[in-house]
Write a protein that binds this DNA or RNA. Sequence first.
RNA 1: GCGCUCGUAGCUCAGCUGGAUAGAGCGCCGGACUUCGAAUCCGUAGGUCGAAGGUUCGAAUCCUUCCGGGCGCACCA
Length: 587
Amino acid sequence: MLDAVRETWKSLIEEQLALYAKEVFGTDVQLPPLAVQTPPKPELGDLAFPLFAYAKMLRTAPPMLASSLKTRLEKVEDRPLGDLLVAGPYLNVRIDTAALATALSVQLSEQKELYGTNKSMAEKRVTIEFSCPNTNKPLHLGHMRNDSLGESVAAILKANGATVRKVNLINNRGVHICKSMLAYQKFGNGETPQSSGIKGDHLVGKYYVMFAQWAKEDPTAEDQAQEMLRQWEAGNEQVIELWKLMNGWTLDGLHESYQKMGISFDAYYYESETYKYGKDEILKGLEQGVFYREEDGSVWVDLEPIKLDKKVLLRKDGTSLYMTQDVGTAIMRHKDWPFDSLIYVVASEQQYHFRVLFYVLDRLGYDWAKDLHHLSYGMVNLPDGKMKSREGTVVDADELVDTLTSLARKEIEAKEREALVDDIEKTSQSIALGALNYYLLQVTPTKDMIFNPAESISFNGNTGPYLQYMGARISSMLRKYESEYADIQKLGFDSSLLTLSDERELIKQIALYPEVVRKAGASYDPSLLCSYLYDLSKLFSRWYHDNPVLKAATPDLVRSRIELATMVLQVLKNAFGLVGIPFLASM
RNA sequence: GCGCUCGUAGCUCAGCUGGAUAGAGCGCCGGACUUCGAAUCCGUAGGUCGAAGGUUCGAAUCCUUCCGGGCGCACCA
């Protein structure tokens, strides 16, 4: 809604600039588009239009130009509400926030949880692939950034009107899977999740670690794992049985973790089925002459056109590779559910892989290759360096969630709020999730980030729980309002009473929300919403601290401030849904 | 060596298509609860935006070079 106001002023001023230029030069002049900015301080208005470029062209000092434009604009009859002010070389506008608030109030009460959504991607079918765990160990912090991003981007795209299909490709085959199987075969003694009380994925992970230890002492271990893989591919019954058994354990564990973390998928793919795909496609490409065969029989693609070297696509024995599979999988997916766009949420270390993959698909003649996107995100490091599974510094996902949950519970108990929250366990878990998702999504995806455990468990400052707390406080106040202020509820909303600087800022921030949703969607960047949420919450918090709402001076003022708080609450809820922060009416 | 990417306060991060005095959180120090939830709010200190050139009326933002960190450059996935 703010963008509409901005556009109106912009084109109005541009119009006047053009007229002015015409007078000066006696002919139509092509002027550069006017920049719209936000003034650094509220006193300077709400919109800023820098005039440097035009002043130079028209040979006037910018402040002179600003004031003559102001005079001209004030004569325009049907101009929008709001005041013009000259601020040095800028022509600024103080918009009519009361009118804006009235319009917002209507829009919000009609749209409710749909406020902020739009139809810009209404025709788009988007497949988003994320998570893609191996079935030899439980989820860790690295997966969590991936999962948070995947879920959030999916939600953001939906908010922009897209039809989204979330898919997960389970990496359930390969030599690394065989390693945990082999270790289990040797040392397992029939242990099961039931017998040991260990969650399935953790149990399998335990044997994966055990393999690594064993391999240090026994140099034949690696070969044995390779041999087991050959048996798996040959369909050896015993091996397949063990594989099914252990994969089942892991998947049960992973599903439990997903559920706890609010992660879900529309479709699952399994590498044990997809790993054979792609071979035919590569051979077809060979026939078409887009690939070539080396003397030893292997098939290659020349990457000179994208300034890379070359890449093998089929081994000399005709077996496929990671790249081959991904080519096949993409094609199969497009047949399965034709998409307008496919997003791969995968760590930045695989940038090269995706550049090649997209190029290969393009060479094969798939015109949708241009619609593939690698949402590349940076590494998650610890304050003292990288996570190393060998050194045991990997942060386990289940453990982290549990730790945060119990800390949240302690906090609730310490504040003696058990009675306020209906289900303390559920609430604690929601706080933990809010803290984690916000922590992980706050950073621009492409950047590496440092995960500071001490900081992540903090509920103060710029954190998920801080945002949740604002939601809880507003909810609490509104409950009180609804039960005790029947008379005031009958009054109408008078937006002209919201004249404080903080109130004007809040109104603008509420109006800004739809744009943030749009931008976050266009750039696949949830961190924009995180920043937005923090700004909104901080603004609200300060205003709420300084100004009484229910105890405001007059009934009309109470009514108006309640309306403002109600709008803030709705926007908080809506935005929470896009970044994985559970809303809590009390905490 | 080549390619990609990132260097902003002690630490973790913002900074929109170049624009007004570069912002938050944490931490430090100091304030604010008989009043709507103090998981809160307010204030002080803290920066040659990695360095040097260049483009521009104007650069943290764009270009070049250099320095420093990360990640890739497998007939592994």
